[in-house]
């Protein structure tokens, strides 16, 4: 039952990603004016339904495991996708800019795909780690990642729109991309949100170490160092923007660099380095 639910969620995320991308691709064309709104609707409602199912899946999974599921790759990537979708839906709610979905939904889909492929039943977690610290720490970190991915999406939208304006694409007035100023501003806000969440997540994490006794803790953990580097990249980005007025194209590029750093921290460290944060 729970496996079927997960498969269904996966398929809905796949179709939502496809329709999101499709709506961006056909945005320029006007031969099919009724088709585009339909596709946009399917994409958006697919995303919403997918999110509801994913929430249900995580809740059931939590019940089945008996503790907050954050041990295995399955748990982690599913939660990652959940955070991405949540942040996306909040942004849509606030700005009505659905186009962002064309960039973030494929990332969420890939996360669920990984989660689904690694699905397993065995996931033991030391008793001492099963507490609210874990929930607070991981939720904050994943929401921060999701905000950074939204910033990355806005960065890509900025670069695409800028290229169209610069190349003087004749149909550039018919696409769905927001104005350069809008992408830039919203990307920046997402970055700030991400930095705040990440800072809180790291603080919660470091406070938590005070209470863990039976798991050996070392400060020079690969994940910790990598996270601090990522944090620094984003803080530097905000600082340079504030003091030197770096924005627009440079900000878009640094959002992409930040995204790579997030991926390295999240996935890379686990694959290539040893860390106590490693998912099994």
């Amino acid at each position: 039952m729970i496996n079927f639910l997960f498969l269904l969620t996966l398929l809905i995320y796949l179709s939502a990603s496809i329709f999101q991308t499709l709506s961006l691709a056909i945005g320029n064309r006007t031969e099919t004016p009724l088709l585009r709104p339909t596709i946009e609707h399917i994409a958006f409602w697919g995303t919403t339904i997918g999110f509801a199912l994913l929430t249900l899946f995580i809740a059931l999974w939590w019940l089945q495991q008996g503790h907050f599921p954050m041990t295995h790759w399955t748990d982690s990537t599913a939660f990652f996708a959940w955070a991405i979708t949540l942040i996306y839906l909040i942004i849509v709610r606030l700005t009505h800019l659905r186009t962002l979905g064309s960039f973030v939904m494929p990332v969420a889909f890939i996360a669920i795909l990984i989660s689904y492929s690694f699905a397993t039943d065995t996931a033991a977690l030391p008793e001492s780690l099963q507490n609210y610290w874990l929930i607070a720490h991981t939720t904050l970190i994943f929401l921060a990642y999701a905000a950074f991915i939204a910033a990355f999406g806005f960065g890509l939208m900025y670069l695409m729109a800028e290229r169209r304006i610069r190349e003087k694409t004749h149909t550039l007035l018919q696409n769905l991309l927001p104005s350069l100023g809008t992408s830039d501003e919203l990307g920046y806000r997402c970055t700030i949100l991400g930095v705040i969440l990440l800072t809180m997540g790291v603080i919660v994490g470091s406070l938590w170490t005070q209470y863990i006794q039976d798991v050996p803790w070392k400060w020079l953990d690969a994940k910790v160092i990598s996270t601090l580097m990522t944090w620094f990249i984003y803080v530097a980005q905000i600082g340079i923007r504030q003091f030197w007025g770096w924005h627009g194209r440079r900000a878009a590029y640094s959002a992409i660099i930040g995204f790579v750093a997030v991926l390295c921290t999240y996935v890379g460290v686990d694959l290539f380095l040893d860390s106590m944060h490693t998912y099994r």
Binding site: I165, L172, L173, P178, S179, L180, G181, T182, D184, E185
Partner: peptide, 10 residues
């Protein structure tokens, strides 16, 4: 005007 709207957020 339309082009300007594609560049500036407002």
């Amino acid at each position: 005007v339309e082009l300007a709207k594609r560049i500036f957020n407002t």
